[in-house]
């Protein structure tokens, strides 16, 4: 017998399993990044005055601004991809999912140039506590992007499209869960950007 409430909502909670599951996962992610943000503030207070500002000024604000825009765009195209599925328009879904993939790839490429630029100037995680937390936070965020890309590829490529033909409702629920994860990754960046680059 199948596990119930995969596609149809349970009456008293009004939820399907995957939606509750992904939100609880995101709750744990909030605590994961929360722990690191907590470390950031703690270390900033413990550091000699001006130390964090000095090292933060070595980061490239234009690159990060462009990356912020790109990530926001990918978030919009992700939610559009889901909406296209709801409108039963699979070719539009493919287009929007493709844009999301492209944006996330560009994000990583820019991140790569940011990192190598730092290494080129002899700046490493061991250079200062600020750089350490910068590389850790953005690195962990980058890993989340990579994970997202892997799942997006799965839903972009034909291997998953059988599910769409058989159970379109189930397929769009999965894309919705993926979308929630992706918006969360975007949301983390929205805080990372000012905290690391601008303050």
């Amino acid at each position: 017998m199948e596990v119930p409430y995969i596609v149809k909502e349970r009456e008293d909670t009004g939820l399907i399993n995957s939606k509750l599951g992904i939100w609880i996962f995101l709750a744990s992610e909030i605590m994961l990044f929360g722990g690191l943000f907590s470390a950031y503030i703690f270390l900033r207070l413990a550091a000699p005055p001006g130390d964090f500002d000095y090292w933060a000024s070595k980061l490239s604000v234009p690159m990060a601004t462009v990356n912020t825009m790109i990530l926001i765009s990918s978030s919009v195209s992700m939610v559009m991809a889901w909406a296209s599925l709801k409108l039963n328009d699979f070719s539009k879904y493919k287009m929007y999912m493709g844009i999301t993939l492209l944006c996330s790839a560009i994000f990583l490429v820019i991140k790569y140039f940011e990192y190598t630029g730092k290494f080129h100037h002899g700046i490493y995680p061991s250079s200062s506590t600020f750089m350490a937390i910068y590389f850790t936070l953005t690195g962990l965020h980058g890993l989340h992007i990579l994970g997202g890309i892997a799942v997006m590829l799965y839903f972009y490529l034909p291997i998953s499209h059988g599910l769409w033909r058989e159970q379109p409702e189930h397929f769009s629920n999965r894309v919705e869960a993926l979308g929630l994860y992706w918006h969360f990754v975007d949301l983390v960046w929205i805080f990372l950007f000012p905290v690391l680059y601008l303050l």
């Binding site: 994961l32 470390a39 061991s126 350490a132 850790t136 962990l140």
Partner: peptide, 25 residues
């Protein structure tokens, strides 16, 4: 478990950085 374990995961990552990447968290 869901709410308390992730901060330890964060702390473990930081300690791993201290040991492997030479940081000083």
């Amino acid at each position: 478990l869901v709410l308390a374990f992730p901060p330890l995961e964060a702390a473990a990552v930081l300690q791993l950085m201290d040991r492997v990447a030479g940081t000083s968290f």
